[in-house]
Design a protein around this nucleic acid. Sequence first.
RNA 1: GCCGGAGUGGCGAAACAGGCAUACGCGACAGACUUAAAAUCUGUUGAUCUCUUAUAAGGUCGUGCGGGUUCGAGUCCCGCCUCCGGCACCA
Length: 825
Amino acid sequence: MGYRYNFHEIEEKWQRHWDETELYVEAEAAHRPRYYCLEMFPYPSGRLHMGHVRVYSIGDVIARFKRMQGFQVLHPMGWDAFGLPAENAAIQHNIHPHRWTEANISHMRQELKRLGFSYDWNREVTTCEPDYYKWTQWLFLLLYKNGLAYRKAAPVNWCPSCATVLANEQVVGGLCERCDSKVEKAKLEQWFFRITDYADRLLDGLEKLEGWPEKVKSMQVNWIGRSEGTEIRFAVEGFDEELPVFTTRADTVFGVTYVVVAPEHPLVDKLIAGQENEDEIRAFLKEVMAQDELMRTAEDTEKKGILTGRYAVNPLNGERVPILIGNYVVGSYGTGAVMGVPAHDTRDFAFAKKYCLPIREVVAPPGKEAGGEPAEAYVDEGVLINSGDFSGLSSQEAVEKITKHLEAIGRGGHKVNYRLRDWLISRQRYWGTPIPIVYCPQCGIVPVPEEDLPVMLPTDVAFKPTGESPLIHCEEFVQTSCPQCGGAARRETDTMDTFIDSSWYFLRYTDPHNDQLPFAKEKADAWMPVDQYIGGVEHAILHLMYSRFIQMVLSDLGLASHDIPFENLLAQGMVLQHGAKMSKSKGNVVDPDTIVNQYGADTARLFILFAAPPDKDLEWSDEGIEGSYRFINRVWRLVVEYLDLIKDVSPEVGGSLGPRERELRRIVHAGVKKVTKDVAERFSLNTAISAVMEMVNGMYHYKDTPLDEQDLGVVREAVELLLLVLAPFTPHVTEELWHRLGYDESIHVQSWPAYDEAATQADEATIVVQINGKVRDRVTVPADSGTEEVKEAVFAQARVQEYTAGKEIVKTIVVPGKLVNIVVK
RNA sequence: GCCGGAGUGGCGAAACAGGCAUACGCGACAGACUUAAAAUCUGUUGAUCUCUUAUAAGGUCGUGCGGGUUCGAGUCCCGCCUCCGGCACCA
């Protein structure tokens, strides 16, 4: 009877049935423990790709498993629907972004349903709809009122191709994260979120996130880039100005022989004005600034500098040192100026050699005197020399004492620096949440009152990437009246970074239809934090740090009780084909629709869960898909062929069973145990599936055994347990077979099966016999044998006697039920 | 340079608490079924050597490399190598 099951018919039937019966709509019963299982919502780009199938398959297994374990599970889905591709489609295909987005959403929603994911679609959120972005605006105002949103002119990252500014986090290797264009610097008035106020808490908070992968946490640590050191304020000779520098090596301050400032340093103009070589310096500045920052600050770029003819005064020893302008000093980090200590810094050493600046050693390696002209910089710690009162101190003591001394004389002190910049959130684009701000000639910057939200995004605008928001040209949007004085005023025409939309959507799911608030606190508190969040590691910094920030703000302002959004995080690996990430340009894309048409959703899900652990990259394999399909058919045949025999049998097991039946029960119950542990304790879905495969193999081995009445109960039990543990992975075929067994209720609302621990124990144990750690023999003993009985059986073995003959037995180690190691000399 | 992760059969991978290395699957090979093929069911499948007509049996080696701890190491410790990811003239 080698036939295959009709997955088309079965999958469609049950998808319709689940939809109609609202099987996965969460009823908010109060008496069950809650579990919030969330996968990162997709951007509605048009079609699902294999990466989507992977995250959502992983999440669906967890959600279904938890539901069967008796949890009330929140498992929602929505759309991160604002963003550039919609606008580009509008420009290229003359279709309105809203229509394009809507069409994509409805197509992708169908694709998700065809994969059989158990979402509560009643909670669907779409960030580009006014009922959502109204609350994104509300959140903006909340931050604004609390001093966490501000406007300022600043040098910003400008993507000429996208014609908009970008957050630092969106610039990857000097290129635009979206389109790989070279990012330029521009000075513009922009809106920022004060995320740097939270730098320390974002950093310290990582320690509490025990359920997050190290990889993600270390990426955030690197990104925040906390650096502890000393600020030293040099006086500038001839000016009533201070020139602060930042250093982590205050112990080397007596070795300062010059100071270098970045070309964009605010003091540069003042310093060089009227100098005799001003023209030369300006030419140098022009040359350096013409280079883009990435090039200029690359490690292998030649260090260049020019003397300004001005001098700074070292506050520790009163020494005059020349001030230079250097291409290697980064204007946006620290103070934009550094002290030059050529004897103890590799870069400074090279720079000093090139420009014939003096080199003075002030730190000696412990137990060694420095002397003569050093051949290279000594960058390690040591003992101070040539450092006045501080000579003789260790580097560590000196840092502390010098910092204190600077503080005492009002010339500096302890300082913490961060790499993290404030979050630039304004975008000169149309398809985003409008920033709810009005500019009034009388009152200045005026927030739109809450009761006037949402500030609706107008629908009839021209889509041209002009570098200004298309909203600028939409007069009925721009022209408004001031909420304060009622006079004529203009609206802010920039929209918000779409990462703001996705920094709070997980909260909206807990209360998606609230029209009074973004979410009611009780509702959010009931579900938050997300118990398990799943998504790609490409969001390790952007989305996952912004969400942590917003959640902290909400918690500080009393709107939420938790200050972390995601308790546990699973960063799933990529889907590869031929070792490379699937991409259109590489032509190695496998379309999920094709696979679902050819093999069905259950097969697609099973393969993608089986081929690799969730957190590792997964290599696509056509043979692997075939294998998963074969396995499901194998299950189908097994159950269908038993059906007539066991249809009216109860899954009860009693009386004394024969050895084959006991073996079958052992395999099945051990399988249930392993699946339970693998899914519950470590999301090891690939090994869970392999355990199910072993159950099936065991059942096939049993299959031709002649059956009596009592054995039918054992078979029925085995079939039911198999279907139940397989249900989260392949929901359709298990649902069909479950009903064929005679049940009316869905398999997906059944309790997760318990296993019989006693049944998992074999009657006999195979003991491995080692002589001096090498396996030499095996012996089978009754499972309940004690240490002495096992030893007796082992020493009775002919091979053991052979190996021990004439030797002294030093010791015998017995690992109960497993192994005996005899040490001989 | 700093931080994080990973190196196991022909391939994807497993070994969860230091106890049979390679479960499960793919591929390959063989048997059964079939007029035949496909499908299906069953079995074999780390390398190498010895003995044997063959089967069977046995030895040695084997988890990136070199050491160490231990009765016993893929797993723990020390020192390296390679690959992947993040940060980086960051002062």
